[in-house]
């Protein structure tokens, strides 16, 4: 469904991604693992068009999107959950959700505020609070909910477990399983291997802007050498 082939991305003069490739098939949950600064976020931002690769190809759902503006990629059905959360702090929870709202798609059931509040009861309690007054974890839930309002086919989750209480991480693992059951595809950037193991089918490891490993999550678990080398666990 999402195919990134051999992209090179730069920040100004700094060459960050050196020919990164990855594939996510429909209905899969794929983890992108790697240390700090390895290039996970940059890969994800390249996919959603927030940074433009100088070289290489990105196709989503059969359409080449390489140098498209973010909003067009979003219209195709790619949802992005940023790592810094980036909720709109002066807008209420409801208004935050409204910003993310997009028309329903024929092929998948549409999300509504009600179904989302069922998923994240904490948010329901705070629906008229300003985004800026939520705690870190509540903001994380809001940013995911906001993206779901766009009814994406594939959702890019950048380190969703960061700063989240263990119980909620477990809950989030269940939610991702539900996404999968609902036909949603997920690409997850993660440092928390415990969490990645719980939810994903496949894993990639990126290091210094290059893909170093690709395999199923079970293979990775068996391969302690790779884990130690690239993830130090």
């Amino acid at each position: 469904m999402l195919e990134i082939s051999n992209i090179h991305t730069f920040y100004g003069g700094a060459h960050i991604l050196h020919g990164v490739s990855l594939r996510v098939e429909a209905g899969e949950v794929v983890s992108l693992l790697g240390r700090n600064g390895a290039g996970k976020t940059t890969t994800i931002k390249s996919a959603i068009g927030l940074v433009r690769p100088r070289d290489g190809r990105i196709t989503f759902d059969g359409t080449e999107t390489t140098s498209w503006a973010s909003h067009r990629i979003c219209h195709l059905g790619l949802g992005y959950v940023p790592e810094e959360r980036r909720i709109f702090s002066d807008l209420t929870v409801m208004e935050n959700l409204e910003v993310g709202r997009r028309p329903a798609r024929d092929d998948i059931p549409a999300w509504t505020t009600d179904t989302l509040f069922e998923l994240f009861p904490n948010l329901a309690e705070r629906r008229y609070n300003l985004g800026g007054h939520l705690s870190g974890g509540e903001q994380q839930m809001l940013t995911i909910a906001r993206t779901l309002m766009g009814n994406p086919k594939l959702i890019l989750l950048d380190e969703p477990s960061e700063g989240i209480a263990p119980v909620i991480i477990e809950k989030m693992a269940e939610v991702i399983a539900e996404f999968k059951a609902a036909g949603l595809t997920v690409l997850l950037s993660e440092q928390n291997l415990h969490f990645a193991k719980l939810v994903s089918d496949k894993a990639y490891i990126i290091e210094s802007g290059e893909m170093r490993y690709e395999g199923t999550i079970a293979e990775l678990e068996a391969n302690s050498e790779v884990r130690e080398k690239y993830l130090a666990v």
Binding site: L50, A69, R146
Partner: peptide, 25 residues
């Protein structure tokens, strides 16, 4: 109005608004 909410959201983080599918231009 929805437009107004989008404008207020863009006031805070226009890049994010565009990643949520709003044509920034």
């Amino acid at each position: 109005t929805r437009v107004g909410i989008l404008v207020r959201a863009a006031t805070q983080d226009r890049e994010m608004v565009s990643a949520l599918g709003v044509n920034q231009s």
